[in-house]
Write a protein that binds this DNA or RNA. Sequence first.
DNA 1: CGTCTGACGATAT
DNA 2: TATATCGCCAGAC
Length: 109
Amino acid sequence: MIPPLAIERMLAVVQRIPPGRVATYGQVAALAGYPRRARLAGQALHAAGDGVPWHRVINAAGVCSLSADSPAGRLQRERLRADGVEFRGERVSLARYGWRPQAQAPVLD
DNA sequence: CGTCTGACGATAT
DNA sequence: TATATCGCCAGAC
């Protein structure tokens, strides 16, 4: 079972991700105080409801871990696009859209 | 316990 | 860029 505190902290981190930016599972876990717990972040997000922008969390390869065939997978991609995030095929450029907490500079060209 | 699986990650080829 | 491998950790069985 995942410690409720862990879920709370993970979701708190996710809520800081601004629109148009994406974070990786490992990044969210680390920022929440659980380094090397990427999978834990995944479970925490699974338990997330409305109010937390869970769609802005993808894997380190820049791909949505949720299947593009699943309803949730399509919803995630749809919401990211709505945020202004561009896909190159199934992949998002972390170099351009990766969330960098300290200096959230505008998207470079 | 051993094994497998998963909203994962890093490195090598 | 895509695969292969291995590491990692919690649950399910």
